[in-house]
Design a protein around this nucleic acid. Structure first.
Length: 326
DNA sequence: TTCCGGATGG
DNA sequence: CCATCTGGAA
Protein backbone atom coordinates (compact mmCIF):
# COMPACT_ATOMS: atom_id res chain seq x y z
CA UNK A 1 0.00 0.00 0.00
CA UNK A 2 1.65 3.27 -1.10
CA UNK A 3 1.86 6.21 1.21
CA UNK A 4 -1.11 8.52 0.93
CA UNK A 5 1.03 11.59 0.61
CA UNK A 6 2.97 11.17 -2.61
CA UNK A 7 4.87 14.42 -2.40
CA UNK A 8 6.03 13.34 1.03
CA UNK A 9 7.28 10.06 -0.40
CA UNK A 10 9.36 11.73 -3.06
CA UNK A 11 10.62 14.24 -0.56
CA UNK A 12 11.60 11.50 1.83
CA UNK A 13 13.44 9.58 -0.86
CA UNK A 14 15.28 12.72 -1.83
CA UNK A 15 16.31 13.49 1.73
CA UNK A 16 17.31 9.88 2.21
CA UNK A 17 19.96 10.08 -0.49
CA UNK A 18 21.69 12.88 1.41
CA UNK A 19 21.08 11.32 4.78
CA UNK A 20 22.68 8.00 3.82
CA UNK A 21 26.02 9.54 2.94
CA UNK A 22 26.00 11.99 5.83
CA UNK A 23 25.19 9.41 8.44
CA UNK A 24 27.66 6.88 7.08
CA UNK A 25 30.44 9.45 7.40
CA UNK A 26 29.26 10.44 10.86
CA UNK A 27 29.13 6.79 11.92
CA UNK A 28 32.66 6.17 10.70
CA UNK A 29 33.93 9.12 12.71
CA UNK A 30 31.76 9.11 15.80
CA UNK A 31 30.47 5.60 16.55
CA UNK A 32 31.14 4.51 20.10
CA UNK A 33 33.57 1.61 20.25
CA UNK A 34 31.34 -0.91 22.01
CA UNK A 35 32.78 -4.42 22.32
CA UNK A 36 30.04 -6.14 20.34
CA UNK A 37 30.36 -3.79 17.38
CA UNK A 38 32.50 -3.96 14.23
CA UNK A 39 32.35 -7.70 13.84
CA UNK A 40 33.94 -8.52 17.18
CA UNK A 41 31.01 -10.51 18.60
CA UNK A 42 29.30 -13.67 17.52
CA UNK A 43 25.59 -13.50 16.59
CA UNK A 44 24.84 -14.85 20.06
CA UNK A 45 26.94 -12.08 21.60
CA UNK A 46 25.03 -9.52 19.57
CA UNK A 47 21.73 -10.96 20.81
CA UNK A 48 22.93 -10.76 24.42
CA UNK A 49 23.98 -7.14 23.92
CA UNK A 50 20.58 -6.25 22.50
CA UNK A 51 18.68 -7.88 25.35
CA UNK A 52 20.82 -6.14 27.95
CA UNK A 53 20.62 -2.80 26.15
CA UNK A 54 16.84 -2.82 25.98
CA UNK A 55 16.70 -1.64 29.53
CA UNK A 56 19.95 -0.04 30.52
CA UNK A 57 22.40 2.63 29.44
CA UNK A 58 25.26 1.34 27.35
CA UNK A 59 27.89 2.47 29.81
CA UNK A 60 26.37 0.17 32.40
CA UNK A 61 25.84 -2.68 29.96
CA UNK A 62 29.43 -2.99 28.76
CA UNK A 63 31.00 -4.51 31.92
CA UNK A 64 28.04 -6.84 32.42
CA UNK A 65 28.21 -7.99 28.80
CA UNK A 66 31.94 -8.68 29.03
CA UNK A 67 31.62 -10.70 32.22
CA UNK A 68 28.57 -12.53 30.90
CA UNK A 69 30.20 -13.53 27.62
CA UNK A 70 33.28 -14.69 29.44
CA UNK A 71 31.19 -16.87 31.74
CA UNK A 72 28.89 -18.14 28.98
CA UNK A 73 30.42 -17.53 25.54
CA UNK A 74 27.61 -19.20 23.62
CA UNK A 75 24.04 -20.42 23.90
CA UNK A 76 25.05 -23.93 24.92
CA UNK A 77 27.08 -22.60 27.83
CA UNK A 78 24.24 -20.42 29.09
CA UNK A 79 21.81 -23.27 28.67
CA UNK A 80 23.89 -25.30 31.09
CA UNK A 81 24.02 -22.65 33.82
CA UNK A 82 21.81 -22.77 36.90
CA UNK A 83 19.02 -20.23 37.14
CA UNK A 84 20.50 -18.92 40.39
CA UNK A 85 23.80 -18.23 38.64
CA UNK A 86 22.04 -16.41 35.84
CA UNK A 87 20.01 -14.19 38.16
CA UNK A 88 23.10 -13.39 40.20
CA UNK A 89 25.18 -12.55 37.13
CA UNK A 90 22.42 -10.29 35.83
CA UNK A 91 23.13 -8.26 38.93
CA UNK A 92 21.57 -4.84 38.99
CA UNK A 93 20.97 -4.50 35.28
CA UNK A 94 17.26 -4.44 36.00
CA UNK A 95 14.25 -6.32 34.66
CA UNK A 96 15.56 -9.72 35.77
CA UNK A 97 12.75 -11.58 34.02
CA UNK A 98 14.68 -10.85 30.86
CA UNK A 99 17.63 -12.79 32.22
CA UNK A 100 15.36 -15.78 32.62
CA UNK A 101 14.05 -15.39 29.09
CA UNK A 102 17.57 -15.09 27.76
CA UNK A 103 18.42 -18.40 29.36
CA UNK A 104 15.22 -19.99 28.03
CA UNK A 105 16.24 -18.64 24.64
CA UNK A 106 19.69 -20.20 25.04
CA UNK A 107 18.13 -23.55 25.83
CA UNK A 108 15.93 -23.44 22.74
CA UNK A 109 18.90 -22.45 20.58
CA UNK A 110 21.02 -25.20 22.10
CA UNK A 111 18.41 -27.93 21.84
CA UNK A 112 16.52 -27.04 18.73
CA UNK A 113 19.16 -25.32 16.63
CA UNK A 114 22.28 -27.18 17.71
CA UNK A 115 23.67 -24.10 19.44
CA UNK A 116 23.59 -21.92 16.33
CA UNK A 117 21.42 -18.82 16.50
CA UNK A 118 18.98 -18.82 13.56
CA UNK A 119 19.38 -16.09 10.96
CA UNK A 120 15.81 -15.84 9.72
CA UNK A 121 13.19 -13.54 11.16
CA UNK A 122 10.44 -16.05 11.85
CA UNK A 123 12.72 -18.37 13.79
CA UNK A 124 14.29 -15.53 15.76
CA UNK A 125 11.04 -13.84 16.72
CA UNK A 126 9.70 -17.17 17.98
CA UNK A 127 12.50 -17.40 20.56
CA UNK A 128 11.72 -16.49 24.19
CA UNK A 129 12.39 -12.83 24.92
CA UNK A 130 12.90 -11.97 21.26
CA UNK A 131 10.39 -9.63 19.65
CA UNK A 132 10.34 -7.69 16.42
CA UNK A 133 13.03 -5.24 17.44
CA UNK A 134 15.56 -7.80 18.67
CA UNK A 135 14.99 -10.19 15.78
CA UNK A 136 15.54 -7.37 13.29
CA UNK A 137 18.60 -6.10 15.14
CA UNK A 138 20.22 -9.55 15.07
CA UNK A 139 19.53 -9.99 11.37
CA UNK A 140 21.00 -6.59 10.56
CA UNK A 141 23.86 -6.23 13.05
CA UNK A 142 24.94 -9.85 13.40
CA UNK A 143 24.14 -11.36 10.02
CA UNK A 144 24.31 -8.31 7.78
CA UNK A 145 20.82 -8.88 6.39
CA UNK A 146 18.84 -5.99 4.94
CA UNK A 147 15.89 -5.33 7.25
CA UNK A 148 14.50 -2.21 8.94
CA UNK A 149 15.33 -2.03 12.63
CA UNK A 150 12.72 -0.02 14.48
CA UNK A 151 13.03 0.99 18.09
CA UNK A 152 12.03 4.17 19.89
CA UNK A 153 15.20 5.98 18.88
CA UNK A 154 14.79 5.07 15.24
CA UNK A 155 11.17 6.15 15.27
CA UNK A 156 12.08 9.47 16.83
CA UNK A 157 14.94 10.20 14.42
CA UNK A 158 13.16 9.15 11.22
CA UNK A 159 9.96 10.90 12.18
CA UNK A 160 11.80 14.12 12.90
CA UNK A 161 14.10 14.09 9.88
CA UNK A 162 11.66 12.92 7.21
CA UNK A 163 8.23 13.84 8.54
CA UNK A 164 9.12 16.87 10.62
CA UNK A 165 7.07 15.78 13.61
CA UNK A 166 7.58 13.94 16.88
CA UNK A 167 6.73 10.25 16.85
CA UNK A 168 3.89 9.27 19.14
CA UNK A 169 3.92 7.01 22.14
CA UNK A 170 2.71 3.45 21.96
CA UNK A 171 3.52 0.96 19.24
CA UNK A 172 5.12 1.99 15.97
CA UNK A 173 2.50 3.20 13.52
CA UNK A 174 2.09 1.72 10.06
CA UNK A 175 3.39 4.95 8.64
CA UNK A 176 6.51 4.80 10.76
CA UNK A 177 7.22 1.23 9.69
CA UNK A 178 6.67 2.13 6.06
CA UNK A 179 8.99 5.08 6.43
CA UNK A 180 11.73 2.93 7.97
CA UNK A 181 11.44 0.49 5.08
CA UNK A 182 11.33 3.26 2.47
CA UNK A 183 14.47 5.04 3.62
CA UNK A 184 16.55 1.91 4.23
CA UNK A 185 19.41 2.05 1.73
CA UNK A 186 19.82 -0.66 -0.87
CA UNK A 187 22.80 -2.96 -0.49
CA UNK A 188 25.12 -3.56 -3.39
CA UNK A 189 25.46 -7.10 -4.75
CA UNK A 190 28.69 -7.64 -2.85
CA UNK A 191 27.27 -6.22 0.38
CA UNK A 192 25.00 -9.11 1.11
CA UNK A 193 24.60 -11.08 4.33
CA UNK A 194 27.84 -12.36 5.77
CA UNK A 195 29.63 -9.06 5.81
CA UNK A 196 28.61 -8.62 9.43
CA UNK A 197 29.83 -10.30 12.55
CA UNK A 198 30.00 -13.99 13.11
CA UNK A 199 31.49 -15.43 9.98
CA UNK A 200 33.67 -13.43 7.69
CA UNK A 201 36.96 -13.59 9.53
CA UNK A 202 36.07 -10.99 12.09
CA UNK A 203 37.69 -8.05 10.36
CA UNK A 204 34.39 -6.22 10.50
CA UNK A 205 35.81 -3.92 7.88
CA UNK A 206 32.96 -3.47 5.43
CA UNK A 207 29.37 -3.50 6.52
CA UNK A 208 26.51 -3.21 4.08
CA UNK A 209 24.89 0.23 3.68
CA UNK A 210 21.67 -0.94 5.31
CA UNK A 211 23.58 -2.20 8.35
CA UNK A 212 25.53 1.04 8.71
CA UNK A 213 22.31 3.00 8.34
CA UNK A 214 20.45 1.04 11.00
CA UNK A 215 23.26 1.36 13.49
CA UNK A 216 23.90 5.01 12.70
CA UNK A 217 20.26 6.04 13.05
CA UNK A 218 20.07 4.35 16.44
CA UNK A 219 23.37 5.88 17.51
CA UNK A 220 22.26 9.32 16.39
CA UNK A 221 19.09 8.97 18.43
CA UNK A 222 21.07 7.85 21.45
CA UNK A 223 23.72 10.57 21.50
CA UNK A 224 22.53 13.51 19.36
CA UNK A 225 18.86 13.39 18.44
CA UNK A 226 17.67 12.81 22.01
CA UNK A 227 14.08 13.06 23.13
CA UNK A 228 14.07 16.24 25.16
CA UNK A 229 17.28 18.08 24.28
CA UNK A 230 18.54 17.27 20.78
CA UNK A 231 22.01 18.57 19.94
CA UNK A 232 21.15 19.93 16.51
CA UNK A 233 24.42 21.84 16.41
CA UNK A 234 26.25 18.52 16.29
CA UNK A 235 23.84 16.69 14.01
CA UNK A 236 25.04 15.64 10.55
CA UNK A 237 21.46 15.83 9.30
CA UNK A 238 20.59 19.22 10.75
CA UNK A 239 20.47 20.98 7.38
CA UNK A 240 18.12 18.45 5.80
CA UNK A 241 15.97 17.78 8.88
CA UNK A 242 12.34 18.76 8.50
CA UNK A 243 11.86 18.90 12.23
CA UNK A 244 14.72 21.36 12.60
CA UNK A 245 13.47 23.38 9.63
CA UNK A 246 10.07 23.62 11.27
CA UNK A 247 11.57 24.91 14.48
CA UNK A 248 11.29 21.71 16.56
CA UNK A 249 7.49 21.89 16.95
CA UNK A 250 6.24 20.13 20.06
CA UNK A 251 9.74 19.02 21.08
CA UNK A 252 9.58 16.09 23.49
CA UNK A 253 5.80 15.69 23.34
CA UNK A 254 5.61 12.00 23.03
CA UNK A 255 4.35 10.23 26.08
CA UNK A 256 0.66 10.02 26.59
CA UNK A 257 1.12 8.65 30.07
CA UNK A 258 3.19 10.33 32.76
CA UNK A 259 6.10 8.22 33.80
CA UNK A 260 5.52 5.97 36.78
CA UNK A 261 7.59 6.86 39.79
CA UNK A 262 9.86 4.16 41.14
CA UNK A 263 9.95 4.86 44.86
CA UNK A 264 7.50 2.69 46.74
CA UNK A 265 6.38 0.69 43.72
CA UNK A 266 6.22 -3.06 43.44
CA UNK A 267 9.14 -2.79 41.09
CA UNK A 268 11.31 -1.31 43.82
CA UNK A 269 10.19 -3.95 46.33
CA UNK A 270 10.84 -6.78 43.88
CA UNK A 271 14.31 -5.37 43.28
CA UNK A 272 15.05 -5.20 47.00
CA UNK A 273 13.96 -8.81 47.56
CA UNK A 274 15.96 -10.13 44.63
CA UNK A 275 19.02 -8.14 45.60
CA UNK A 276 18.92 -9.67 49.07
CA UNK A 277 18.82 -13.14 47.53
CA UNK A 278 21.73 -12.35 45.25
CA UNK A 279 23.83 -11.42 48.24
CA UNK A 280 22.95 -14.48 50.26
CA UNK A 281 25.50 -17.31 50.11
CA UNK A 282 25.05 -19.45 47.00
CA UNK A 283 22.23 -21.91 47.45
CA UNK A 284 21.33 -20.51 50.83
CA UNK A 285 17.81 -19.78 52.04
CA UNK A 286 16.94 -16.33 53.29
CA UNK A 287 14.94 -16.98 56.47
CA UNK A 288 11.49 -15.49 56.87
CA UNK A 289 12.66 -13.12 59.55
CA UNK A 290 15.25 -11.58 57.27
CA UNK A 291 12.68 -11.39 54.50
CA UNK A 292 10.22 -9.46 56.64
CA UNK A 293 12.91 -6.92 57.50
CA UNK A 294 13.30 -5.99 53.84
CA UNK A 295 10.15 -3.88 53.51
CA UNK A 296 7.74 -2.44 56.10
CA UNK A 297 4.50 -2.98 54.19
CA UNK A 298 3.88 -6.69 54.79
CA UNK A 299 1.02 -7.02 52.31
CA UNK A 300 2.98 -5.40 49.50
CA UNK A 301 6.05 -7.43 50.36
CA UNK A 302 4.16 -10.71 50.21
CA UNK A 303 2.44 -9.76 46.98
CA UNK A 304 5.80 -9.00 45.42
CA UNK A 305 7.28 -12.25 46.67
CA UNK A 306 4.34 -14.12 45.16
CA UNK A 307 4.83 -12.37 41.83
CA UNK A 308 8.55 -13.12 41.86
CA UNK A 309 7.68 -16.75 42.54
CA UNK A 310 5.26 -16.78 39.62
CA UNK A 311 7.93 -15.30 37.39
CA UNK A 312 10.32 -18.09 38.39
CA UNK A 313 12.76 -15.64 39.92
CA UNK A 314 12.70 -17.22 43.37
CA UNK A 315 11.38 -20.19 45.34
CA UNK A 316 9.32 -19.97 48.52
CA UNK A 317 10.25 -22.57 51.13
CA UNK A 318 7.71 -24.08 53.52
CA UNK A 319 8.66 -21.82 56.43
CA UNK A 320 8.40 -18.70 54.30
CA UNK A 321 12.12 -18.51 53.60
CA UNK A 322 13.27 -17.61 50.10
CA UNK A 323 16.00 -18.84 47.79
CA UNK A 324 17.04 -18.48 44.19
CA UNK A 325 15.85 -21.24 41.83
CA UNK A 326 18.31 -24.06 41.17
C1' DT B 1 13.95 16.42 39.41
C1' DT B 2 13.86 14.05 34.99
C1' DC B 3 16.10 11.27 31.69
C1' DC B 4 18.38 7.43 29.75
C1' DG B 5 18.89 2.83 23.67
C1' DG B 6 11.22 1.20 26.30
C1' DA B 7 10.82 -4.01 24.33
C1' DT B 8 8.35 -8.05 25.46
C1' DG B 9 4.69 -10.81 26.91
C1' DG B 10 0.06 -10.95 28.94
C1' DC C 1 -3.75 -1.41 27.18
C1' DC C 2 -0.36 -2.76 31.30
C1' DA C 3 3.67 -4.27 34.30
C1' DT C 4 8.42 -4.74 34.50
C1' DC C 5 13.90 -2.38 37.27
C1' DT C 6 18.20 0.47 38.23
C1' DG C 7 21.50 4.12 39.25
C1' DG C 8 24.24 7.74 37.41
C1' DA C 9 24.06 12.07 34.81
C1' DA C 10 22.07 16.34 33.25
Amino acid sequence: MPDIDDSDEFGAADLAAHAHARLAAWWAAEARDLPWRFGRATPWGVLVSEVMSQQTQMSRVVPYWEAWMEAWPDAAALAGASTAEVITAWGRLGYPRRALRLQECARVVAERYGGRLPNDYDALVALPGVGDYTASAVISFAYGGRIPVVDTNVRRVLSRVFLGVESRGGAASARERRLAADVLPEDGPEDGPGGGAGDGGGSGSREAPSVVWNQAVMELGAVVCTAKAPLCGRCPLADVCRFAAAGLPGLGERRTRPRQRFQGTDRQVRGIVLDALRHAPAGATLPRGRVEALWPDRAQLDACIASLDEDGLLCIEPGGGLRLPA
